[in-house]
Design a protein around this nucleic acid. Structure first.
Lengths: 342, 342
DNA sequence: CTGTTAGCGCATTCAG
DNA sequence: CTGAATGCGCTAACAG
């Protein structure tokens, strides 16, 4: 069982014509005798000819592949973005190479190197929570390979970004908590390294200010997105002399884990403490109580990112466009909402 | 911003030596003057030389990439398998091309074609629920490209498979329900096209037989894995004159959706009806009540599949090994268990 | 319209 | 040890 491939030469020999004519026929070149073309096409089909991409790539210096680097893909957020990416990439004849990093900077660097080695035509990236240095991505720019960020973007590189209005989403989530009568609203924030953490924090802060609710530092905790830390910090918050009556979490996995801890202590959600997340993950409607959260147009983010990338790949243009998509507040039972589950 | 690449020729010219010597130095050929080697390596490093994979692939007729085709990747099962695949593939210097099918046969065929075009060195596949024809995968065999199945396998192709003991997992889940006093145990099964559906069904049936519990056809429903159908069938089951007191679901997403319907009708889980799933998805511990389920060694499946594939890729061997991994029954609250959540 | 030639970048012959 | 030459499969430029 050895690999063997039909080549243009095989079919040229069979038909007793030149390789170039075969190539022309196959690539739809106009100036080919109709009969020859037909014969070639038929034989190619019959012999199950597949062009050798290695050769074509070499000739064109193009892989027709784009890379996607995501920090993780266990939560449903990134897989769904990738669906959007694949959708438009596939439509334009590009293959998508996916690399995930387990939230590790080191792995991100390794993945970038792999994709560089594989000579992708472009790169879509969402950073790990650890990433502070961007040399491994700047290499792509330097080599003329377009890069697009989404979600967790790099603000110091002049490349297109696809984001949502994190500030406004956080603002509205917080305002919703205020409107349902909460006053001691805690925020379990993400690491300050991530711009989305900072923006969501600002949205939270401004909502409090707008409604003249005092900001209490002890109710704001930045953490590293590991589930073990959630347990520690939530317990800490609940042990405060004046514990919070609401909790706005940086994302849904955090909120869901927090709810476990809260319920484990016998507190009722939303009666004793309301909880909101961010992103509307797949299971957030299914947990008990269902989670109020800020939905992002996930798949659309992927589509837009891919489109921005392909625009650059195919035109060699180079504009650092920022595309900001809208969020939507989904009110469910964890904040006392009464929307049906599903 | 045009793509440009450093080639061996560039560094040969710079050092005023032949291209072949540079190549030899770069590839660690033994018979190269130590000084020349050092000079080449240094310059390559300094000029940030990256070998052109297109060229190497063409020469070696090898892409150093393997493909993975999964039916979906919104639930956590497939992403986790892929983590395992990437782990061992990366360790052996292979890139992983991931393709997902949205449970569509048509998309699976398209994905197979893409991966074939990209000339992957091997292919790992889990089938969509629709797949009945395997021509698009047999092509790989015919071309001498190794294929390995996992989870949703094709039984008519003589290639390695990585599976779990679905029969036994289902048997134990069902037996657990019986041991907690249930007698009218319904089974929401998967489509009969999938071997895992049939095996899990058999495990369920044998557990009933073993405990001399009558098998009632009206309590066994095969469905197409779409969430809308879950609603319909669960309502149907609950509307029976003698509704079930337990429910064994083909997988966790099904179980979780079923629980929504059950709770929506005001029934208590597990008091009125116990529920179990299969696979131990990421969120199954977090829902209320937490879900009793059959855990599969997910990541390990990916590792094993990749290892079996690479063995074939690198040795041209061709043995249809079947690797069956063990499952573990995880008892949680949806069947009255008292294990802590998390 | 068709055939011949060259060359993409590299590793590997074969001569020195 | 090193250089020159070959060819992986294909397309494009150049002659007919």
């Amino acid at each position: 069982m050895k690999k063997h491939q039909i080549t243009i030469m095989d079919i040229a020999r069979e038909l007793n014509i030149s390789k170039s004519t075969v190539s022309r026929a196959l690539t739809g070149h106009p100036k080919v005798n109709t009969q020859t073309r037909k014969a070639v096409l038929e034989l190619a089909e019959r012999m199950d000819y597949q062009p050798n991409m290695f050769s074509i790539n070499l000739l064109k210096n193009k892989s027709n592949a784009i890379g996607v680097i995501v920090p993780e893909f266990i939560s449903s957020f990134f897989p769904q973005v990738i669906l959007g990416v694949q959708e438009v990439a596939q439509a334009s004849g590009y293959t998508v190479l996916i690399a995930q990093c387990n939230e590790s900077y080191e792995q991100e660097v390794a993945n970038a190197k792999t994709l560089l080695t594989n000579q992708v035509d472009g790169l879509i990236v969402s950073l790990t929570k650890e990433t502070l240095n961007f040399d491994h991505l700047k290499v792509f720019q330097r080599k003329g390979i377009p890069v697009v960020f989404f979600n967790r973007v790099c603000e110091e590189m002049e490349v297109p970004r696809v984001i949502v209005d994190d500030y406004e989403g956080a603002y509205r989530a917080t305002e919703h908590l205020i409107q349902t009568g909460r006053r001691r609203i805690a925020h379990l924030a993400g690491p300050a390294t991530l711009a989305i953490s900072r923006k969501r924090l600002n949205g939270y802060l401004d909502a409090l200010r707008k409604h003249t609710i005092p900001i209490r530092d002890e109710l704001i905790i930045c953490y590293d997105l590991t589930m073990e830390k959630v347990n520690i910090y939530i317990n800490h918050l609940l042990n405060l002399p004046e514990p919070p009556d609401a909790l706005f979490c940086i994302n849904d996995p955090t909120a869901i884990q927090a709810m476990q801890v809260i319920k484990g202590r016998g507190l009722r959600i939303p009666h004793d403490i309301a909880v909101t997340g961010f992103s509307n993950d797949y299971y957030s409607a299914y947990i008990e109580p269902s989670l109020t959260t800020v939905a992002q147009p996930v798949r659309e983010m992927g589509r837009v990112a891919a489109q921005l990338l392909l625009d650059q790949v195919e035109t060699d243009s180079d504009k650092p466009i920022i595309r900001q998509l809208q969020t939507e507040l989904i009110i469910r039972n964890s904040t006392g909402g009464t929307q049906p589950v599903g």
